[in-house]
Structure formats: C-alpha cells, structure tokens
C-alpha cells in the first residue's frame, strides 16, 4: 500500500450524538498537497484529529503509513506520531517555554542529543525569521510570530505528513504568503501536506486538490496534474465524489 493515508467508510460520532463525519473514504499519496475546507462545525478539526492520531473513528478503516490504526497496538502508534507534524489552529505553544524550547520539543521527546537539537532548532528559527526571538516566550510574541514558532515546531523533525489547521488565520496576507511558501518548500522535499483553511484566495490560486467537508460528508475538488489524489469517496449510494476544477 503506497498511500500515506487511506480512509474507508469512516464515521465519527461523539457519545450518542449524530455522526459528525459520515462514510468518509479517500486516500492521500506520498508528496501530495491538499487543502481541507468547509464551514465552521463541518468536522474539519475532527477529520484532522483522526489523521494525526488524536482521535479514533467510531467506524470504518483508517490506514496511516500503511497501518490499520484500529488494530494497531497503542504503543506502536508512537512511531507514526513522530512522522507527523501538526500546526494547531490556536498554536498550542507552551507559554512557559521559550520559542527555542517550543520548537525543540519534538526532537527532545525522541531523545536527540542536545547539541544536535540546538543546531537544528537555531537553523530553522533563522529560516522562519525568528532569529532574534529565540528566547522569547510565546505570550510576548505577535500572532504571526507565534504562528511561525508553531510551524517550526511542526516541521523540525522533518515529518512525512504535515497537518496545519488554519495556519494563515491570524496573519496578514504577506505573512500568509510566506507561510504558504514554507509549506510548499516542505512539500517539495517529499512531505505530504494537508492544510485546513477558510482562505479561498489560497486554495484557488494553488491548483491543489481541495477536500471539502459539508454536513459531515466529504467532497473532493481536484485533482490537478501536479497533485493526484485517488478519489474514492462514497456518498451513501457508492457514487464517486464530484470532481471540479
């Protein structure tokens, strides 16, 4: 199985409530770049959480890096998590740690030597333009700077799969463009990228496939020649997902 992610008839409900995700089926190829859009409450964050292993689906099959996560022992999910980078919508930076220490976290939890940690973190913070803010704590940074720290933390361990939830939501257009450029650069190195966003300007201009969630159902708009995505979404009656350009 070559897919980085594969969903088969996945459904999710919280408690005894209605299904927030219904019969989601799709797969993502290595090195692809996708956008995830949809109105608020459509289930974007829930779908992302399943993909970055923070949530288990109520039904259906989910394969991450070829592993069926419903049968995968919990201890074995650790190695998968370490291959995934996540940029949270609210950044979720640890406010008592410096920007440097926040970015260093994914390396430190794997037990990498401190000398190597320092070298990689400094290099990345320079790259995202935070050379002069390494020792600053998140509350003293602007929204855009915090965003970049969050992105640096997500990419420091060179993940094979990167999720970003509204990464341009709190920054102006100029910084948004820089951030998108950063993701594109990462994608060029082979990382599969999924970005949840409301920003239509970004999705339209990119030419990348868009996964649109609405009412718990997934509709995939794409693919382009550049980013092929195998669309196997079933809308209850086993129809293929609508494909638009």
């Amino acid at each position: 199985m070559n897919d980085i992610i594969r969903f088969e008839n996945v459904g999710l409900r919280y408690g005894i409530g209605p299904e927030v995700l219904q019969d989601i089926s799709f797969d993502l190829k290595p090195g692809s770049f996708h956008f995830l859009t949809g109105p608020s409450g459509a289930g974007k964050s829930s779908l992302l959480k399943i993909m970055y292993l923070a949530l288990r689906p109520s039904r259906g099959l989910v394969y991450i890096f070829g592993h069926d996560i419903s049968t995968l022992p919990r201890k074995n999910t650790l190695s998968l998590r370490r291959r995934i980078g996540v940029v949270f919508q609210e950044f979720r930076l640890l406010s008592h740690l410096s920007a440097f220490d926040n970015v260093a976290l994914p390396l430190r939890v794997t037990g990498i030597r401190e000398a190597n940690v320092r070298m990689h973190v400094e290099e990345l913070l320079v790259w995202v333009g935070l050379k002069d803010h390494m020792d600053a704590r998140p509350p003293t940074l602007s929204g855009g700077q915090q965003q970049r720290v969050a992105i640096a933390r997500a990419v420091i361990a060179r993940p094979k799969l990167l999720f970003a939830d509204e990464p341009t939501g709190n920054v102006d257009n100029q910084i948004a463009a820089r951030i998108m450029h950063l993701f594109e650069e990462l994608n060029k190195t082979g990382t599969t990228v999924v970005i949840a966003t409301h920003n239509k300007a970004i999705t339209k201009g990119s030419g990348c496939p868009v996964m649109k969630l609405e009412g718990g159902l997934l509709k995939i708009i794409g693919p382009t020649k550049k980013n092929l995505v195998s669309v196997r979404h079933k809308l209850g009656d086993d129809k293929k997902a609508t494909i638009e350009f």
């Binding site: 970055y52 292993l53 923070a54 650790l78 998590r81 370490r82 995934i84 996540v86 949270f88 979720r92 640890l94 976290l105 994914p106 939890v109 794997t110 933390r153 361990a157």
Partner: peptide
C-alpha cells in the same frame, strides 16, 4: 495533549 501528539512517549 501537545506532547502526546508530537510523539512524546
């Protein structure tokens, strides 16, 4: 949760 997601044992 953050530590868990980023791969902390």
């Amino acid at each position: 949760n953050v530590l868990h997601v980023i791969g902390a044992h």
